[in-house]
């Protein structure tokens, strides 16, 4: 189904980017795990005691802090940017530039090409979050033994991973549909950024809360993931969206005219 030489080549040309983003995410996570000990958080709470709300969100426990700051911000933004860059340049970028002609002038089908790229995009994302999970549990065990709720942390990591998988589906699908990089980005980057903005606005005031129904990020419901109830169905929906978008993208790419 996939082309091994193409996968090898794809790994080679995207390896640096993957390492940079993964390293940044792991380092950030380690820093948070190391710095935000219960005593630090207590002092933050006290110093901001007279504010009506805490700008850092719920910081009563490490897991709540992680879910707001790490999974709600850093991991969300950085892995999104990674997916947008890589997803776009894998297909639309190569069609736009014209070098896709070289892949397709060899004995492979279009579906082999797209499934190879899909495997790389989803696979590298999986590896990224596997590393994040490993680093998170490991660093927490060293710096703050017994403070982190490991099970909740892993559920959050999986949740974030599936959200990003759905976003990768959007980027991939747009990349398959459009022959121009700029148009592919309009959807592949535009939609995820829109979701992010809507999600931020929805959290700001009760009047804007309805906006959450317009954001995919709502399906990554950190509160229910931490409490451990009612999150499963949302994650299944995210997975379904991801799978559907990948399949649609590959189908469209197989059938369309290519200006190469």
């Amino acid at each position: 189904m996939i082309s091994k030489p193409l996968l090898k080549q794809t790994i080679k040309s995207n390896f640096k980017l993957f390492v940079i983003f993964t390293a940044v995410l792991c380092v950030l996570l380690s820093i948070i795990m190391t710095v935000f000990t219960p005593s630090t958080m207590e002092s933050i709470k006290n110093s901001s005691g007279n504010l009506p709300f805490n700008p850092l969100g719920d910081i009563s426990t490490l897991i709540n802090f992680l879910s707001n700051q790490y999974f709600g911000m850093f991991a969300l933004i950085f892995s999104m940017i990674y997916l947008i860059i890589v997803g776009n340049r894998l297909i639309a970028g190569q069609v736009d530039k014209g070098n896709m002609a070289y892949n397709l002038s060899t004995p492979v089908t279009r579906t082999q090409v797209t499934s190879t790229y899909a495997l790389f995009l989803a696979g590298s994302l999986t590896l990224m979050f596997a590393l994040i999970a490993g680093v998170g549990v490991g660093v927490a065990a060293i710096t703050q033994p017994d403070v982190l709720d490991n099970a909740a942390f892993l559920r959050l990591t999986i949740g974030e991973y599936l959200l990003q998988l759905a976003i990768s589906g959007i980027v991939f699908c747009a990349s398959c549909i459009f022959n121009r990089s700029s148009r592919s980005l309009r959807f592949g980057a535009g939609l995820p950024i829109l979701f992010f903005a809507t999600n931020l606005l929805a959290g700001m005031s009760k009047d804007l809360e309805f906006l959450k129904y317009f954001s995919l990020i709502t399906l990554f419901d950190t509160d229910s993931i931490i409490s451990g109830e009612g999150y499963l169905i949302k994650l299944i929906v995210l997975t379904g969206i991801a799978v559907a978008l990948y399949i649609i993208g590959m189908k469209v790419f197989k059938e369309k005219d290519l200006p190469l």
Partner: peptide, 28 residues
């Protein structure tokens, strides 16, 4: 088929040798 496109647009992160090697691999 051997195809020579009218507009040559190579991937820009390779040398000529690497491209030739890559296409040879793709073609077995």
């Amino acid at each position: 088929i051997g195809y020579l496109p009218g507009e040559i647009n190579f991937p820009n992160d390779m040398t000529g040798t690497q491209l030739i090697r890559f296409l040879a691999d793709m073609r077995g």
